[in-house]
């Protein structure tokens, strides 16, 4: 009896775990979307918040979010591509310099986001004098997404080893090979890495509350403080009694934008989806 029952029980356990995970995801997304979707109107997206966010829309929050993530991606792109090209072109994979760089990147990837917030606050807000600003928040996020973007870029660059060797066989200088052969070939992967970085950046709140701040006005420049979608949700949920409705509406917008951008970048990357972890 037990002999025949055991395989059934084990298989059941695996499938039950999977079903539970799918159900939890469905429950969370459905809960947020059903409470938020009805409130997301054109007016919600295009007007400023009123009464601390209980009423009105999220226009300045959307603008700040776009600005912070744009700064983050613009700063992370050259850093990540540079680090990846360094690992592929300048050093042997097993060299000390390569292992040190890769080790530093993987430690950086494990640093809690709140620690990035502390460091960013001190470096960008205090020392460089940016204060609470979109620029400070964006640069902090750039540090945070550097490892993931660099890693994806490196993997993609290594996939084009044959093109690289062909370039060397033609006697091209290294800079031509990198600039004219490898970077164009790896561009889809590099942008996919940035897409993952975007997912991280737009979801982030802990690293931003004391770097880009939570001023809810429409920012005039990158030196103004700006509140991102995630920070807006946090503030509505924690500090504004009666802010739940708009918190769910903002969360719906946030989920939709993460899904759209990650799907777009994954599509750019071709058929093989990347681990979004």
């Amino acid at each position: 009896m037990t002999r025949n029952f055991r395989p059934f029980a084990n298989d059941f356990l695996v499938r039950a775990a999977v079903a539970a995970v799918v159900l939890v995801l469905a429950a969370i997304v459905l809960h947020v979307v059903t409470r938020g979707a009805a409130l997301v109107t054109w007016e919600f997206l295009t007007t400023a918040p009123r009464s601390a966010g209980r009423a009105g829309g999220i226009a300045p929050v959307l603008v700040s979010t776009v600005a912070v993530t744009a700064v983050a991606l613009a700063a992370a792109l050259p850093l990540a591509v540079g680090a990846a090209v360094f690992l592929v072109e300048a050093v042997r994979p097993e060299a000390t310099a390569a292992r040190l760089t890769r080790g530093c990147l993987s430690v950086l990837a494990a640093v809690p986001s709140i620690v990035f917030g502390l460091a960013g606050n001190m470096i960008f807000c205090d020392w460089l004098g940016f204060g609470f600003s979109i620029l400070a928040g964006g640069l902090t996020l750039a540090l945070m997404i550097l490892p993931i973007a660099a890693c994806v870029a490196e993997t993609t660059l290594r996939m084009h080893g044959e093109d690289r060797r062909a370039g060397y066989a033609l006697g091209l200088p290294q800079r031509r090979i990198v600039w004219s052969i490898m970077l164009p070939a790896a561009a889809p992967g590099i942008f996919a890495g940035l897409g993952l970085g975007f997912g991280r950046a737009v979801a982030e709140s802990a690293a931003l509350i004391f770097t880009s701040g939570y001023v809810v006005r429409m920012p005039d420049s990158v030196f103004d403080s700006g509140r991102t979608l995630a920070v807006h949700i946090l503030d509505l949920a924690m500090n504004v009694p009666g802010g739940d409705g708009n918190a769910f509406a903002t969360a719906t917008v946030l989920l939709a934008s993460v899904a759209a951008v990650v799907a777009l970048f994954t599509a750019l990357d071709g058929k093989r989806g990347r681990d979004f972890i």
Binding site: L25, V202, A203, S205, A206, I233, A237, L254, V258, F276
Partner: peptide, 8 residues
């Protein structure tokens, strides 16, 4: 699940 922001 991994992509859902922690505030959500």
């Amino acid at each position: 699940l991994a992509a859902i922001p922690s505030v959500v």
